[in-house]
């Protein structure tokens, strides 16, 4: 197998007649930590859903791990945008993490010891081992986010997709969050999308800009002109980008 995990080639997606993604080209390699930024409604979630095989592009080709996105799902961990479950939902942290194995295990099957072992490991990885029996609605935004990452990790993915992961996490918790991702990237490629330029921190090593079109060239550098083109208005790089540099490794 090649080092290329995701290959998106000339992909267009339309909702009705409206194009949401225009001629997207993207390649994610093993070991990549790619941040995709762009305004709300710019097609970020759509792009992730294309990679997950939940949306069929109207034009173009997508392959994940040299096969179709659908077949590759078993190797892709997904952390959806903050999910709106009811706070009183009767499930524990443990129940939720095991759900990550549900699709893999298959209909009519019970969870096995292997599933439970992986769930335990995943909780350790995100430093939430002590929270197993806690009711899911009783967690803070940051804790919840870590549990959802654990739920994605139980598949032992080669690729981790995160949709607006910092939306519900306060700034202080973000450092911790990125440290977890930094550890994870030894074992998997990570793609993170966010509308908040500042949220994509120094840990990311490649940045792309998405607003229907994708501006991307394999590096962390992005010119103010490109940002402007993506956001459709001048973006104040200094105001957004620099304060978060405070959170550099320590």
């Amino acid at each position: 197998m090649s080092d290329e995990l995701v290959r998106v080639k000339n992909v267009w997606v339309h909702y009705g007649d409206v194009p949401v993604l225009e001629d997207i080209n993207l390649s994610v390699q093993q070991g990549d930590f790619l941040g995709i930024i762009g305004p709300n409604g710019g097609g970020k979630t759509t792009l992730l859903r294309v990679i997950l095989g939940l949306i069929k592009p109207s034009r173009g080709k997508v392959s994940v791990m040299d096969t179709s996105p659908r077949k590759a799902r078993r190797f892709v961990g997904y952390v959806p945008q903050y999910s709106l479950f009811h706070r009183e939902f009767p499930a524990s942290v443990w129940d939720v993490v095991l759900m990550g194995r549900c699709g893999y295990r298959g209909v009519f099957q019970r969870y096995t010891d292997q599933d439970r072992r992986l769930a335990l490991q995943a909780l350790e990885t995100v430093e939430m081992s002590g929270f197993q029996d806690r009711q899911i609605g009783k967690l803070s935004g940051g804790e919840l986010q870590r549990v959802f990452i654990a739920r994605a990790l139980v598949l032992e993915p080669k690729l981790l997709l995160l949709d607006e992961p910092t939306a519900s996490v306060d700034t202080a918790m973000q450092t911790e969050f990125y440290q977890i991702l930094d550890r994870l990237r030894q074992n998997m490629a990570i793609v993170l999308v966010s509308h908040d330029i500042g949220a994509v921190s120094v840990y990311v090593d490649k940045i792309a800009c998405l607003n229907r079109r994708l501006f991307y060239h394999d590096s962390k550098e992005i010119s103010p002109e490109e940002l402007e083109a993506a956001y459709g208005c001048p973006v104040d790089l200094i105001a957004h980008g620099v304060p978060h540099r405070v959170l550099r490794r320590h």
Binding site: R49, S83, D95, G100
Partner: peptide, 10 residues
């Protein structure tokens, strides 16, 4: 609990 994640995980 979460249809969106369920769908994505097959």
């Amino acid at each position: 609990f979460d249809e969106g994640f369920g769908e994505a995980s097959g």
